[in-house]
Amino acid sequence: MTMLQHDPDYNFGYLDEQTKRMIRRALLKAVAIPGYQVPFGSREMPLARGWGTGGIQITAALIGPEDRLKVIDQGADDTTNAVSIRRFFARVSGVATTEETSEASIIQTRHRIPEKPLDEGQILVYQVPQPEPLRKLEPSEVETRKMHAWAEYGAMHVRLYEDIARFGHVATTYSYPVMVNDRYVMSPTPIPKFDNPKMDDMPALQLFGAGREKRIYAIPPYTKVKSLDFEDHPFTIQSWTEPCALCAATDSYLDEVITDDHGGRMFVCSDSSYCEDRRAKGHIGKELAVAEALDYVDRGEGASHDA
């Protein structure tokens, strides 16, 4: 077995074994009841509540010497909290990390699903701020538990339809509710609705951890996940009129980057690994030079100017 270097003051993966068992039991039940929120004895973690402690606890209960961990926030590996969480696991587990989506066995994410389709055997761990999709309709946990117990989801449909009446669209662009396995309405976490279709029938296992709210839920591979919609107003995802300014992708979620203070902007992939991969394969967006001037990208090692 590979011997790993991890902080000797803490158990491998930070959590004690009893806590890991408790989380593992919750995970198996979560997988057995797709989309249902299992309460768990969420521990105090050395990172702040609301900063990914649910995802961190799941990853800590999963991770082993053979894993390769990728951590993303807003789709990117280099956002501050992703860096912080990756450093935490490097310290307490010594496990190898990667930025390459297809190399990772565990991907912990906040607010995105990677663009590259995930495979069987991979595990996607979502950080969840608010696990309860009905919370905005009903603040009381006692009541929302009952609504899930009896599958009383009419109020959710009413809310979505009110949006359509007022704005012509469902005015929810992220955390867009889904129905899992035709039974539980579930929050997909604040991923953009662009990512919702990726959840449906995904070959990878999806696990969700809400540390502050003390809930774990899951979607097994190859499970039906349907975004709530109406026959006359089918679910649609966001689209952009222009491709990624850096890699020319037309199939990825784009972030807006402000380039000056008089309305200049460009759109770039939020999934940094996907974007880099495409650039490495020679896909060149039309504003790469602008991005370089803004220090948004760099000509990496071995880069040639005519790339």
Partner: peptide, 8 residues
């Protein structure tokens, strides 16, 4: 630690 991780 590692044995139970593998089994889990």
């Amino acid at each position: 630690v590692f044995g139970s991780q593998l089994v889990f």
